[in-house]
Simulated scan of single mutants.
Amino acid sequence: MNRPEKGMQFAKNVKVIDWLKTEILDQIANLYKGLHYANRHFIIDSLSSLIVSVYILARRVGLSFRELDQAVIEKLREHKNEGHQLEEWYGDLSSLEEYMNKR
């Protein structure tokens, strides 16, 4: 690949990263709307879109899906060890860690 093509790829990647960042913000706004109206479909749609956008953003910045999964599992363990309230009250962190380890 010659120099101009590398420059085009870099510019394209920067543009995609910026687009993904706005997509994440848009889905957060949609999630708030879904929560406000208690619309289950809207909530699931925005949460799933958020997850997809985050995974693709991770890939665009040079992380593998596996690296992101491992970092999430490590973050869950870290929060559990620190006595996070969601773990103490509901066991959510353990449940998510167990789910992710079974995939």
Rank of each mutant, 00 (worst) to 15 (best):
L25T: 13
H84G: 02
K75C: 11
F10G: 06
R66Y: 05
V16M: 13
D45G: 12
K80R: 14
E78H: 03
N30F: 07
S49E: 06
K75D: 07
L31W: 02
E78T: 11
V54Q: 01
E74K: 12
A71Q: 11
D92P: 04
Q70V: 00
N101A: 01
E88Y: 07
L96Y: 13
V61W: 00
K102A: 15
E97P: 08
L57Y: 11
K80G: 00
R40E: 13
A38C: 04
L93H: 09
M8Q: 06
K33H: 02
L31I: 02
E88V: 11
H41Q: 12
S53W: 08
L20W: 05
N101F: 04
Y99V: 13
S94H: 08
E5A: 03
I24D: 08
D45K: 01
S46M: 08
L93W: 09
Q85S: 15
M1N: 08
W19D: 07
L68F: 06
M8V: 03
R77N: 09
E5V: 03
D69R: 11
A58Q: 07
L93Q: 08
N39E: 03
H79E: 15
V52G: 10
R60S: 07
F42S: 15
A11W: 02
L93D: 12
L76N: 11
E5I: 00
T22A: 09
E98F: 12
M100Y: 07
K12A: 04
R103V: 03
K21Q: 03
Q27K: 05
S95G: 05
L57M: 00
R60N: 06
L96W: 14
K102C: 00
H41T: 13
